[in-house]
Amino acid sequence: MTNVPAISKDAFASSGNWTREQTKLAFHFYCQTPFGKLHGRNPDVIALASLLNRTPDALAMKCCNIASLDPAMGARGVAGLGNASSLDRQIWGEFHSDWEALALECEALLEALRAQYAQPVRDAEIAEAVEDISRDFVGETRAAMVKVRVKQAFFRRSVLSGYHYRCCISGVSDSRLLVASHIVPWRDDVAIRLHPGNGLCLSALHDKAFDSYLFSLTDDYRIVLSAALENTKDSFLREAFHPISDRRIELPERFIPEVGFVQRHRERMLVSA
């Protein structure tokens, strides 16, 4: 990435209160990691804790405190450790106000930390994308495309990990067939492009149908088919979609799809009918 920030000597203190930078990176990590893996033995927790100059157990505890702020966790009866700080709440609010800026800032911070400690880039997905872009583009075009890939990678991991990498309709778990599907399309609302609550983990088939407004969801997350899909003569489509009509999708462990986003999608489906 470009515009790698300079790191203040106080930004990653090893003791005392967590700094803004440490808390941002902990939240960034929380978004992309299944709750069951937020423990001090997870190699990814260990790697990030080393960069943050904190212990793995301290990072795991910080993520669990952040989890206590997530309404989805409360709905599942998981309250985290319940010791979220005022800074945790502030960072939670900042991400929800500007997901794109914070995702880019956190990725730039991680890049700067890895460079400082001569650690390799852990994110193979982004590294491969950057290598591909670097071969074909230069200058501002390259920088813009790298940013898009970073944002897309953050959204994909945040959504898919919340659903434990399983399609919320079919249960398909092969990552090659899974899509982080936007409820409100990427092009329609810049403010919520990276909001995990604007995403569903869907198989490629269900993603294409959802994106084409062939089905939508009710406010209580039940599948509602479009008139076109209800009346289709295509035998495959009837077999694939008619049995799931009115079925409730599997909800994620965090960032439950926002009802307002679901309503926007459903209204668009009804208008398209």
Score class of each variant (00 low, 15 high):
residue 41 R to A: 13
residue 86 S to Q: 12
residue 89 R to T: 13
residue 74 G to Q: 07
residue 81 L to T: 14
residue 95 F to I: 03
residue 108 A to M: 08
residue 46 I to M: 12
residue 64 C to M: 15
residue 105 E to G: 04
residue 90 Q to D: 12
residue 46 I to L: 07
residue 107 E to P: 01
residue 74 G to F: 03
residue 57 D to M: 12
residue 58 A to H: 06
residue 89 R to P: 04
residue 89 R to S: 15
residue 42 N to M: 05
residue 59 L to K: 00
residue 76 R to S: 03
residue 49 A to S: 09
residue 53 N to R: 06
residue 76 R to F: 06
residue 54 R to K: 13
residue 98 D to S: 12
residue 34 P to N: 12
residue 43 P to A: 10
residue 56 P to S: 02
residue 33 T to H: 02
residue 110 L to M: 05
residue 111 E to C: 15
residue 84 A to D: 13
residue 79 A to D: 08
residue 49 A to W: 00
residue 96 H to R: 09
residue 50 S to P: 12
residue 61 M to I: 14
residue 96 H to P: 04
residue 65 N to W: 08
residue 63 C to S: 04
residue 87 L to Q: 02
residue 39 H to G: 11
residue 79 A to T: 09
residue 60 A to D: 09
residue 106 C to A: 02
residue 49 A to G: 06
residue 89 R to E: 14
residue 101 A to I: 05
residue 66 I to C: 02
residue 75 A to E: 15
residue 63 C to I: 03
residue 99 W to M: 06
residue 38 L to A: 12
residue 43 P to C: 14
residue 70 D to C: 07
residue 103 A to R: 01
residue 65 N to I: 01
residue 71 P to M: 04
residue 75 A to K: 11
residue 105 E to M: 08
residue 68 S to A: 12
residue 93 G to E: 13
residue 35 F to W: 14
residue 94 E to W: 05
residue 51 L to W: 03
residue 111 E to M: 12
residue 100 E to N: 01
residue 81 L to Q: 12
residue 70 D to K: 04
residue 34 P to V: 05
residue 59 L to V: 02
residue 92 W to M: 15
residue 106 C to V: 01
residue 83 N to Q: 13
residue 56 P to K: 08
residue 104 L to Y: 00
residue 106 C to H: 00
residue 52 L to G: 03
residue 70 D to T: 06
residue 35 F to G: 13
residue 34 P to W: 02
residue 98 D to H: 04
residue 91 I to M: 11
residue 82 G to F: 04
residue 62 K to G: 14
residue 109 L to C: 02
residue 100 E to R: 12
residue 50 S to G: 15
residue 77 G to T: 09
residue 112 A to Y: 05
residue 80 G to F: 09
residue 59 L to E: 01
residue 33 T to I: 08
residue 54 R to Q: 12
residue 60 A to W: 11
residue 72 A to K: 05
residue 96 H to I: 04
residue 43 P to G: 14
residue 58 A to T: 06
residue 48 L to Y: 04
residue 49 A to C: 01
residue 80 G to T: 01
residue 106 C to P: 03
residue 91 I to H: 10
residue 72 A to H: 03
residue 102 L to M: 11
residue 68 S to D: 05
residue 45 V to H: 00
residue 60 A to Y: 07
residue 56 P to C: 06
residue 36 G to L: 10
residue 45 V to F: 06
residue 94 E to R: 11
residue 75 A to S: 14
residue 103 A to T: 02
residue 55 T to L: 01
residue 106 C to F: 00
residue 88 D to R: 03
residue 78 V to N: 10
residue 58 A to P: 10
residue 86 S to L: 15
residue 90 Q to E: 14
residue 44 D to C: 14
residue 97 S to Q: 11
residue 97 S to P: 12
residue 77 G to N: 11
residue 61 M to S: 14
residue 64 C to Q: 11
residue 88 D to W: 04
residue 74 G to K: 11
residue 106 C to M: 00
residue 33 T to E: 07
residue 109 L to P: 03
residue 48 L to A: 00
residue 64 C to V: 14
residue 108 A to G: 11
residue 49 A to E: 00
residue 113 L to C: 13
residue 88 D to K: 01
residue 44 D to P: 06
residue 66 I to F: 01
residue 95 F to S: 00
residue 84 A to P: 06
residue 105 E to I: 05
residue 57 D to P: 14
residue 56 P to Y: 00
residue 80 G to L: 07
residue 73 M to S: 09
residue 70 D to P: 07
residue 107 E to G: 02
residue 85 S to L: 13
residue 52 L to F: 04
residue 85 S to D: 01
residue 68 S to F: 08
residue 73 M to N: 08
residue 100 E to S: 09
